[in-house]
Each structure stands twice: as C-alpha cells, then as structure tokens.
Design a protein around this nucleic acid. Structure first.
Lengths: 236, 236
DNA sequence: ATTATCTATAGATCTATAGATAATGC
DNA sequence: ATTATCTATAGATCTATAGATAATGC
C-alpha cells in the first residue's frame, strides 16, 4: 500500500531558525527546500506530468527540477512508474475524504449534490495537488492503477446515490440515471480543462458556484429552487 | 497548408475486381489495404495516439501497424509531428463544417443549441476519426497548433452566440455567459471520456439526446420546453 | 526515369544499476 | 555505520538520414 505522506519516519522536533544538519553526501547544486525530498520530487513531477504527460517527462527533467542528479531519484522511488503512482494517489484522496465527511451531514439529496459539484469543481480549480483529468494519461488504465479507479468509482457512486435519492423524492427528474451520473461527474472535471488556460479570467469561487448551479438546474424538477439550495448549502 | 486528404494526385479510374499494379519496391511484409498509404498511416496513428498519447507512441509502432518499415513513414510525412498535425486537423474539421451548414438553417437559439450539443456529442461518440479531447495531448498547445485552436474557437463561438441570443430573447437564463459557454462546450466533449470505456453499455443516439436535454434544461428559463425543442430539432 | 519501398545506421536520448564518496551519528 | 547523494555507464530505445533496390512507365 502506498501512503501519500512518503516520509513515514519519526521526525525530531526542529528548533525554529536553526538550520538542521543534513546527513549524507551534499548535493552537487545545492538548492534545497525545507520540504522532505520525496515530497519535493512529487511536487515537481506532478507539475511536469501535468504539463507534458507521463511519457513526455523524463526522469532527468524531474531530477533537475528537484535539484538532484537523475539517478538520485531512485533512492526515493523504485522507478518512474512509482513516482507516477504516488502522484496519482495524492490527487484523488482529498475528494474521497470530503465524501466521507459529507455522509455524516445527512443533507437532502439536492443540497448534497450541490455541495458535491461545488466542492469537486473548486478543488480541481485551486488545489496545487491536482494532476489533471485521468484522461490526460493513457498510461493510467484500470489494469495498471486499480486503486485509482476504485477511488474514482467511489466518487461516481456518490453522484449516482444523490441523483437516485432525489428522483425518488421527486426533486430531480431526468432521462437515464447512468448517463446523467456520468455527465454531472464529468461536468466538474471538465472545468479543469478550460480553467487552467485562463486562471486569471475567472474567480474559482464563481466557477464552482456557477457549475453547481448549472448542474443542479439541469436535473431539478423545479429549477428555480436552485437559489434556495445554494443558500442551504452554506459557505465553502 | 495541410489538406486532410493527403493524396492529392489524380487517380486513374480503377476497373473493379482488378488488382491495380503497384509501382515501387514491394513491401517486406505485404499486408496492403486499398486505402491510400498516407491515409492508412493516419488511421493507425490516430488510434495509437488516442490509446497511448503522442510521446507514448513510437514511429516504429505506427509503421508496424501500417505494414511498413519505420523509415518508410518519412516518405509520406516529414516527421512525427507532421503526422500528429494531420491527425489533429482531420478531427476538428467535420464539426466546423457542421456549424457552417447550421448557420443557414437560421433556427431559434434554443433549437440551434440543442442541435449543436446533440451533434457534437454524437460525432464524438461515433466518429472513428476522433482523436480524443485536446487535453489528452500536452503537445497540442496554442503555440504549436494555432490552426487547431483557431477552429476550436469557432466552435466555442457558436455556443456563445446561441446562448447570448437566447438570453436576449428571454428563453435562456444563466449566471455568467463565459463560464456557461465553456461548461456546455465541455459537456459534449466530456462524453468522450467515459463513453469510450463502456461503448456497449450505451446507445450513442441516447447519449447524444440525453446530453442535449441536460444541457438545455440547465439554461432554459422554462425547462419543460425541452421536449418541444427536441421535437423541433428533428431527427439526427 | 520514377516511385515506393527497403536496409543500415548515426546520434540522441532515456531508464536504471553499480559502486564510489562525503556528510553525520555513535 | 548509516545515509544521501554522486559519477560512470550499460543497454535499450527512438527519430531521422543516406543510400540501395525492386517494382512500373515510357
């Protein structure tokens, strides 16, 4: 099992302002960050994978960006694929956590769906940890990354659940549960695609609100209820 | 300028049933198709790029799949990037053509939008020529492929135009024209992502109809009008 | 003569391993 | 002794060029 915090070792408390003595051979070009090295590697790898894809990013580029020589990566990760796996895991986990927390609120279906779309969209717009849509990565298949697709299915399940509940109580109306589940799920994810390009043109809060509004209106029996639902959903 | 039909040379009419004599050195492994070679190369390249990305597909793989030796590709295309460019161009062109044709119908905004979403979705679901979402390809940037992004902007413009017209006449209502334009455009495109995985679970006609329904409901002032609009939109 | 292919290969990567080395820790 | 790094490099690609060759066309 892969944990998202790579460095599991107990860290001694670090007196503030004091430069910690680093054991091991010093780096050739010493541009260190405070972050644990494995996390720094993941951060730069994530950015590079997002910008150039998995196959399009070389281990040398990752190492350079992290201030290491290329072979030093393999001290922290068995191979390039394991770097990718760790990056991918970090990406979905927060959404799963959100869904777990939400379950305890026991909101009515419409409010729950609004909150889910809004959170999902906002998270994708703002979180530095986001890799991108899985469809940007042909190497991210069900066979190679079952744990990722499993988590993703949990998210889909949440959408499907709220839609089904809402329909049962007559607040939602739609054609085909499966297709609508996929469409609403994709709606948030699709934001990623265009939002990245014009980060500064839009406020992420407004993008998230507008997306949730639009998603809800699309399935509500009485679309004008959307403003009430928005109010009931509370702040971010 | 790159034309989508690569082989522009005049072809002599070919008597049916007669095997045309092929000039040039015969292939090592002779698994020829009737298709012009350049088009065959594009067809297999498109499939491979979709499945494995640009950087993840080698020219050897393309050549193998087309029944040629690797260096023979460069008889038809200057380099790997030009193969990609041709594939990409073939992908958007049909949608542009559709939009041009639609302009002549002069439909009211709601019908026009319905037809656009429905066609876009159906096209993406069924057309073998589809490469995938541009966001699957980090190498497809505005700098490297301005002609592609130009065509894509024309599609966005069509969405924006219908939405603005509809709002002016009071049939549509929404928060923010720009965001909604992007969302509806992405809606059709997002279909691609999940539809590919379960091709057999869904009928593309139903996917296209359901997507157009949902998209329209999301912006209609009176969502129940959607069934009328669907009727007015005619058959596929 | 022209064309479509081939074989051979240069030169540039790219991933991962082996083993040395320069720190701290005890 | 342990750790984090380094250098050197093997071995496997991968793209594209050079130049030969096996067909048809005239």
């Amino acid at each position: 099992m892969l944990s998202s915090t790579v460095n599991g070792m107990a860290k001694k408390a670090q007196p503030i302002g004091q430069t910690k003595p680093r054991i091991g051979r010093p780096r050739a070009s010493a541009n260190e960050t405070d972050q644990p090295v494995a996390e720094e590697i993941l951060a730069v790898a994530r950015r590079l994978f997002r910008e150039k894809g998995f196959a399009g990013t070389s281990t040398r580029e990752i190492a350079d960006a992290a201030g290491l020589r290329q072979p030093s990566l393999f001290h922290y990760f068995k191979n390039k694929k394991e770097i990718f796996r760790a990056v991918v895991t970090d990406t979905v986990e927060p959404v799963i956590t959100f869904i777990r927390t939400e379950a305890e609120r026991d909101d009515p279906a419409d409010v729950a769906l609004y909150r889910l779309v809004r959170h999902d969209t906002y998270h994708l717009c703002t979180n530095e940890n986001v890799l991108g849509s899985p469809f940007q990565f042909p190497e991210l298949t069900e066979e190679s990354h079952p744990e990722f697709w499993g988590m993703r299915d949990q998210i889909t399940d949440a959408y499907r659940h709220h839609l089904r509940e809402g329909e049962k109580h007559g607040v939602f109306v739609f054609n085909n549960l499966e297709i609508v589940t996929q469409l609403l799920f994709s709606l948030g994810e699709s934001t990623l695609a265009w939002y990245q390009k014009d980060r500064d043109r839009f406020d992420p809060h407004q993008v998230a609100d507008t997306t949730a509004d639009l998603g809800l209106r699309a399935v509500l029996t009485h679309p004008r209820r959307v403003s009430t639902i928005r109010r009931q959903s509370g702040a971010f």
